[in-house]
Design a protein around this nucleic acid. Structure first.
Lengths: 210, 210
DNA sequence: AGAGCAAGTTAGCGAAGCTAACATTCCTTC
DNA sequence: GAAGGAATGTTAGCTTCGCTAACTTGCTCT
């Protein structure tokens, strides 16, 4: 029936078995890759099945429907974004201005690197509302941003409400990410360097002198 | 060449007829409504056909495919956004700070009022690249924003490069719109008033003192 | 009036999401 | 260690959708 590619040497030990082993994770990985590459619009469950080497009915043993799989991908995306952001902050030292700027740049870099995934993570309010893992991981991501801005404010005597400042920064960085990956900047300001945009806007939004 | 250049004779006869009269416009209107109501994700050409009272093959006399119809909807969306923005500016008087703030509020209000349409207009870079009417109307919209910020800067002695300032404001306002309609603010800052956010961030980005 | 074209129609293909019914393997329990 | 149920695959098939082909209708223009 299934032509098992047993000529793979060591990997051949992974015999072509009826049961996949961990199809759930394999499907999430396949979907994550497909969404990152081509976006959620054109993503099809059938594609993910082909990539995982199973029939198109198999996913329904692990996910209620297409949306539930995408919700899991979304949650993983938020985890990845949070991890990127943390790495950027820690490389600069918590509570410093460079850390805040690096955080913004990491956010933009994530969006630019995987625009399809980024659009899935935002742009799908239904997922947020319906799946707890999405709202949890998403909330964790924004929560981290707010926490870091709070640290900066306290450490540097910024008198504004830290929460308010954080929301402003997040808003700006998110806008930059969206406009960048949607190609809107290109039309209007062809030579724009987004990293520089972040670096120059951050102090303004922190309330420093222009 | 616009198709509406013909005389009113044919369209005036509203009898139950084989030929629709102006199916192209009817389909655009139906699609505009459906996208505004439910988003482009769940939009189907078949739905638009039902709403227009016509078979599912009929659209192909007027549009190459589903995307071409959505591109037209996108262009209309940009026209509407530009119109809203202009109205807001003119109500406050060009070149004033209230005008700049009103412009931002109008942008956010447009997004909040028709989130599905807003997401279609942004979030679909393919449409921008492939259809001239999209990149024209889109460019016109952003161009207007930049022009208005330029007027403010010149009128009020803001020394920064007006283009740079405009991009910052646009970025912020766009980010606020996106996060708002995607429900992200709700999770993190439940009591947030977006209008106030715009009003307080605008002076900062214009380089005024915090 | 009749030719020709514009703009509708029905029919049907292939792909997708999803469900139902069947098949195989895993795992517990005697 | 075999029996059998639970888990997890499969195939078959339904419906919807995007799109095309081939046909039909009726408007327009000499």
């Amino acid at each position: 029936m299934t032509a098992s590619g047993q000529s793979e040497g060591a990997a051949a030990r992974q015999k072509a078995k009826y049961h996949h082993g961990d199809l759930r994770e394999a499907l999430i990985a396949a979907a994550y890759g497909l969404v990152s590459e081509a976006g959620a619009e054109s993503f099809s469950l059938a594609d993910a099945c082909r990539r995982a080497g199973v029939s198109t009915a198999a996913p329904y043993r692990h996910f209620k429907d297409r949306e539930e799989l995408l919700a899991e991908v979304t949650a993983r995306g938020f985890d990845a974004l949070t991890a990127d952001t943390k790495r950027a902050v820690e490389a600069q030292g918590e509570g410093s201005l460079p850390a805040v700027i690096a955080m913004g740049k990491a956010y933009v870099a994530f969006a630019a690197g995987q625009p399809g995934l980024f659009r899935l993570m935002f742009g799908q309010p239904r997922l947020m509302g319906a799946f707890p893992q999405v709202s949890e991981t998403g909330g964790g991501c924004f929560g981290y941003v707010i926490e870091q801005v709070g640290k900066y404010c306290r450490a540097n005597g910024v008198e504004r409400d830290a929460n308010e400042v954080a929301v402003k920064l997040w808003t700006f960085v998110h806008g930059a990410s969206s406009l960048l990956i949607d190609g809107k900047y290109e039309k209007v300001t062809p030579g724009l360097e987004v990293e520089e945009l972040i670096a120059s806007a951050t102090p303004l939004l922190l309330g420093h002198k222009g």
